[in-house]
Amino acid sequence: MIEVIVVVAMAVFALLAIHSRLLRNAVIYLAIFSLMAAFFFLLHAAPELAIAEAVMGSGLVTLLYLTALKRYKVFTIAVVTDFEYRIRDDLISSVQRSDAVQDIRTFLARREREAQIVFVRENRDEALRNPDYDLVLAADDASLVVYGSEDDYLVVELELMFRMRAFGSGMGVRFEWSESEVAQ
């Protein structure tokens, strides 16, 4: 009887781990699945294997996954231009080398995010509606306009940093909030 319960619970937690939308939840479901497997080994009189499964599966692997989640977070920045014609190399290099983009890069690197800058062909509103982009930069000849969602606390902190620095520097960075219609 208890065997059947354990097996069914293992299947349920395996399905939950596959279908959960948040990776952190999936890691926890996988840990519970592993613990159930350890208990199953114990029921079949294999305590040595059970303790190995408990240590490896639900201890070490869970912590390793959490480490991986902590380590690698890509922050995607989409750059849109007002020009109709194609994105040229000098535009890319001027945006990449601009002070504001370097500041955003170091700001993100200090918080263990990797800034990934993509140049997209969509116009501004389409890019804002795309949930894959964390930040949208509108590049002009003179200035950069940064569009971000107010729900993202990183963007709020970034805006604060630029606002505190804006006195007298005249860098030409303007911040605007997008409507938070971005689907979660």
Binding site: P47, A50, I51, A52, V55, L63
Partner: peptide, 23 residues
């Protein structure tokens, strides 16, 4: 039940937990 490998895994998870809390 247990032994070198399993105990070593527990000791390593102490180290990883330290990273998760305080990187």
């Amino acid at each position: 039940p247990g032994g070198g490998f399993q105990g070593g895994g527990i000791l390593a998870s102490v180290f990883i937990a330290r990273y998760v809390v305080h990187p």
